[in-house]
Design a protein around this nucleic acid. Structure first.
Length: 354
DNA sequence: AATCCGGGGTC
DNA sequence: GACCCAGGATT
């Protein structure tokens, strides 16, 4: 079987070039009898959804230090976990992470299921993550397809069909290569290949372990694959955020609704966000000042220009929205990035007001 | 099938 | 700054 030999070529490369990551159990450790920790594999794979290894590293280390087991995580308060996730993005992942941990505890006795099918039923675990956990943590020969694998397969077979339409075809091609032996290492090897050699731009074809069988390399089309259907331009929205600082140092904050943008995260009360600043009232009556400037932030599907208003308010202040969070409890690092930008903008204004 | 969800890196 | 990258849930 040529395919088996091809997988073996990649595994040989991986044995030498596998990147060290805090969640990985390397071939040497496994030879000594160590097994991957399913909790670590799950946590890292959820964090890695749409997110780079560099960004995930410190979050993974912090999470496993704070919550060494899935049971520890399941027992934690929602706000604490959301705060630790702040800055990593796609906050639905954090909400589903907690849901999943609690289901694993309540329905699976604190042990992760070991099949792709069972994993797929858990919150926040889709086709990619289910296959990744099943293969990496449980040695099952599942077909693992993420963006890296799609790119590698499109080039290996010179597929010019644009994504996402090409996905079934690329998945089928990936299936023909997935080995029965060391499927977890193989899955990680393809993704490492995509991250380090078969990169989106300037692929290093000259040192690729799959340069011989690569059709796009032969055709000279590797750099332009995979093709993608063009995306829509991002509109710009505007809004106003209100930052009230009480005499005792408490900040007026609100927990955003679970559904929607920045769901479940802390944020400053304010107007909605639309093409023009929507009509609205401040969260309380105060001498609001405009320090000037805007927090500029780009979300998945729109740009935001967020201006801020700042005020110092007395102890008796009774807000229409949000609640005062004591200075000792408030950590700016608990804020999603756009809210932290607004905070940074306002902080300078408060310094000036002193 | 299309849309909604952040943030970081590269050019 | 503009552009590129990368899964799951929802409808």
């Amino acid at each position: 079987m040529r395919e088996t030999a091809q997988a073996a070529d990649l595994l040989s490369w991986y044995d030498v070039h596998a990147r060290q990551m805090p969640w990985r159990t390397g071939p040497a450790e496994r030879a000594a009898g160590a097994r991957p920790n399913p909790y670590h594999v799950w946590l890292s794979e959820v964090m890695l959804q749409q997110t780079t290894v560099a960004a995930v590293r410190e979050y993974f280390t912090r999470f496993t230090a704070l919550w060494p087991t899935v049971g520890d995580l399941a027992a934690e308060e929602d706000a604490r976990v959301m705060g630790e996730w702040a800055g990593l993005g796609y906050y639905a992942r954090a909400r589903n992470l907690l849901k999943c941990a609690r289901v694993v505890v309540s329905d699976h006795d604190g042990t992760f299921p070991d099949t792709r099918e069972a994993l797929l039923k858990l919150p926040g675990i889709g086709p990619y993550t289910a296959a990744a956990i099943a293969s990496i943590a449980f040695d099952r020969p599942e077909v693992v397809v993420d963006g890296n694998v799609e790119r590698v397969m499109a080039r290996l077979h010179d597929v010019h069909t644009p994504l996402p339409a090409a996905k079934p075809e690329l998945t089928a091609l990936a299936a023909t290569l997935t080995p029965e032996d060391r499927p977890g290492d193989y899955a990680q090897a393809v993704m490492d290949l995509g991250a380090t050699i078969c990169t989106p731009r300037n692929p290093a074809c000259g040192i690729c372990p799959w340069r011989a069988p690569c059709a796009a390399r032969a055709a000279g089309t590797a750099p332009e694959l995979p093709k993608k259907t063009p995306k829509k331009p991002k509109p710009t929205r505007q809004g106003v955020a209100y930052l009230a600082l009480r005499e005792d140092g408490a900040w007026l904050l609100e927990t955003r609704p679970d559904k929607g943008l920045l769901g479940g995260m802390l944020g400053w009360p304010g107007s909605g966000w639309a093409e023009e600043v929507p009509p609205h009232e401040p969260p309380l009556e105060a001498d609001w000042r405009d320090p000037g400037g805007e927090a500029l932030h780009t979300f998945t599907h729109f740009h935001l220009r967020l201006s801020v208003r700042v005020a110092r308010v007395p102890m008796g202040a009774n807000p229409r929205a949000g609640a005062f969070l004591p200075a000792a409890t408030f950590r700016p690092s608990d804020l999603p990035t756009v809210m932290r930008k607004a905070f940074d903008l306002a902080r300078g204004a408060f310094v000036d007001m002193e």
